[in-house]
Nucleic acid binder design. Structure first.
Lengths: 334, 334
DNA sequence: TTGAAAGCGGTACCAA
DNA sequence: TTGGTACCGCTTTCAA
């Protein structure tokens, strides 16, 4: 079904048909109705490629997931996609997901997207402090929004949770329960969120006059389990561990069990992300959560505005509060 | 950067440049090298829309996730995407993810995809016994592959786990441990997998001469929790529950805890899917797993073949064995 | 109010 | 081995 065919059927020019379908005013109402009816009857759908070529836009927005095979385990981003997808669909955009593991090929994916005009806008997630993706995109005309922050200089829209405040608050909460040995299991410092969360913990510990104890490891269960085993075997093992992520916290739970420690009686554990797995762990994991509905909504709005031509400004930068999700993995120390 | 510009810079025709870039043989090696070098230097990337319009192909393959907002919780499909994404990338295809909750608008998404030529191929997941998506696609020229099966008549490529055999085996395993009251928590019968798994359970129970006990509910934690509470409050509560999915099994774990039952001592629980949450539940959930790497690989191969023009035939239909993942939620009855 | 025609950026046929 | 050119399907001036 092409415009040509539709026009031929109607004995009209493709010009008129096109305008009628786009709802232009300079088309006779009778003609418009006739066209609409025929389009409906013949199940006309405009060819996306032709439309894109002509208009120079793709009606596609892409989110590139920085995770490789087997690590595609972030319900977080799916939840985000679901919220944003709705917003974009309302405006006629497809939200598509691409996978591009960090590494030498990562930038290729972005270049292909940008230079091949494969999307009208991009969503960047899992930001790093020095983020080559942001640096690259700032040098292009491609509208993009960022979930998270970066030290990469430049003005661009972003939405991030206030990880620093949240981790400071969580630290104070643990101290208020009586904990004195509170350790922080930090994610790799190259990730912005890791640095912010760590800073929150450190600030609170300093203010409380408590000695910091930070261990850094990869943000997955295995690495956290190993790091935690070591920590617990040390001279002055902590009575509480504040973990940068839930995946790490799950590893900690396992390490504690392996050492015969009972959580939360012997060890309190707190995570961040509110992963589904945390709700069903033993014990249920106390955690924190970035409101994804709000985040996605803001990001979508910002990106749509940027695509519409609005320049990035500092009203397009939001840091939103992180919500505590208390469950069963926190208690006063013995 | 367009072909035109590149050609002008090189003092060549766009024809020659185009062919040089596509690696055709009828271009002088010297010219080809010159073109390649210039394209590299000028960072030439073909315009995707133009190429698509001309070639009539999109270089895009889409997977439509039949889940709505807040229900975007299937690590399964992400894992699958990751595997398939690699295969497709090797061949120059982008794999994109779209969300289309089942309901009146679901078919609209498919029609838009098909009639707007927005993809060269489709992957259909979460099949139903009567599946309007498959029925529709069979009537179009759009190549597609299915993860799962359907009663919808017609010849199309699919890959599915052998849920019937797996659930029969799991039932026999429970019986071998001494269980006599084995219940099955079934997912809605409209879903093909639900029917197959139930059939496996029923067949095994019949063969064992044990009385069947089937409860059907939605395939999520809440519904399963409620259904299980009722089941456990009944006259002859089961000593083992075989759940159609892990999400349901997690709900059962919770229901058991709420009734003060200890798993696996008082109640054995088995799920299916090998969700991450099951590895960290209390106790760790015994489950089953469809090998996703193999499944994704097969599906990708089949779809690529279909896109390449191969007709669907019965060599493109695979039923693969499901692997048992024993963990801590199964024991002999007290 | 309608239609003719140019052109978006490639690809592929045909001729040179 | 190279170049001219038609054309993919649509949008959008410009003219009628």
């Amino acid at each position: 079904m092409s415009l040509k065919l539709l026009a031929a059927t109607l004995n009209l020019s493709i010009t008129t048909v096109s305008r009628a379908l786009d709802g232009y005013g300079d088309v006779a109402p009778a003609t418009r109705d006739r066209v609409m009816a025929a389009a409906e009857a013949m199940q006309y759908r405009p060819n996306a490629a032709a439309r894109r070529l002509r208009r120079g836009s793709t009606e596609v927005v892409s989110l590139v997931l920085p995770t490789g095979p087997g690590r595609f385990d972030e319900p977080l981003y799916l939840e985000l996609m679901s919220v944003m997808g709705e917003r974009f669909a309302e405006r006629g955009y497809d939200l598509t997901l691409l996978a591009a593991p960090p590494g030498p090929d990562e930038m290729k994916t972005y270049r292909r997207l940008v230079e091949g005009r494969r999307a009208d806008g991009l969503i960047v997630v899992r930001t790093r402090r020095q983020d080559p993706r942001i640096a690259y995109l700032l040098g292009t005309k491609m509208p993009f929004v960022v979930m998270g922050r970066s030290d990469t200089p430049g003005l661009y829209p972003f939405v991030d949770g206030d990880g620093e405040a949240a981790f400071a608050a969580a630290t104070r909460d643990l101290a208020a329960l009586g904990h004195r040995h509170i350790a922080h299991l930090a994610a790799p410092a190259a990730l912005t969120y890791a640095t912010l969360r760590r800073a929150g913990y450190e600030r609170a510990m300093d203010e409380l006059g408590l000695p910091r104890q930070v261990v850094e490891c990869d943000a997955d269960e295995q690495a956290a389990r190993a790091a935690c085993s070591e920590l617990l075997a040390g001279a002055a093992p902590p009575t509480a561990i504040l973990c940068a992520t839930d995946r790490m916290a799950l590893g900690v739970l396992r390490a504690a069990r392996e050492r015969g420690l009972s959580v939360p009686a012997d060890l309190s554990v707190v995570g961040h992300d509110n992963l589904p797995a945390g709700a069903y762990s033993d014990p249920p994991l106390s955690t924190m959560e970035l409101p994804l509905a709000e985040t996605g909504d803001l990001l979508a709005r910002m990106l749509l505005a940027r695509i519409g031509g609005a320049p990035p400004d500092d009203t397009m930068q939001a840091i939103i509060p992180i919500r505590a999700v208390p469950r069963g993995s926190v208690a006063p120390p013995r």
